[in-house]
Amino acid sequence: MKQALELKVNGQLYEVFVEPWQSLAEVLREELGFTGVRVSCNTGDCGSCTVIVDGKAVKSCLMLAPQAKGKEIITIEGLAQDGKLHPLQEAFIDHFAVQCGYCTSGMILMAKTLLDESPDATEEEIRAGLSGNFCRCTGYVKIVEAIMAAKEKMNFAR
């Protein structure tokens, strides 16, 4: 039976009718049109569907939509503020950290929570922190470079 559910996504409230077993990823993509949430494995292994829920990185294919009730959800669509890209988004462009783009949303949101939690994360910590987000195209070198560059920029701005 579908139930009404209120979700707060990127600062805005939405009312959706969902089955209790529907994943957050599915509801964000199919019901609300946030297709920047990419689903690649649907078993919580690859990290491409990563979103931020109350400040924590969450694999949205593993969270049921009703579990996100009353929480602040951030998807890649909500990362740029007032038309200005987040430093991570800028760095991913400038450092050529994007290829097919399918892992990019999850990768950027994972990196954001990593840097929010530890603004001085070392390269080693960043690489370990990304170990649940796979990328098949880039070989990770430029992704890690971009995150390191964004870190400098974010710390400078603080």
């Binding site: 949430v37 890649i76 669509e77 890209l85 400038d94 994007v98 990019t104």
Partner: peptide, 21 residues
């Protein structure tokens, strides 16, 4: 020259569309 990829902006903002969408 290493000019910026034309698809990079759409991909970092989540606006890029794939067949699955």
């Amino acid at each position: 020259k290493s000019v910026t990829r034309l698809d990079a902006l759409a991909k970092v903002t989540g606006q890029a569309k794939y067949c699955t969408d």
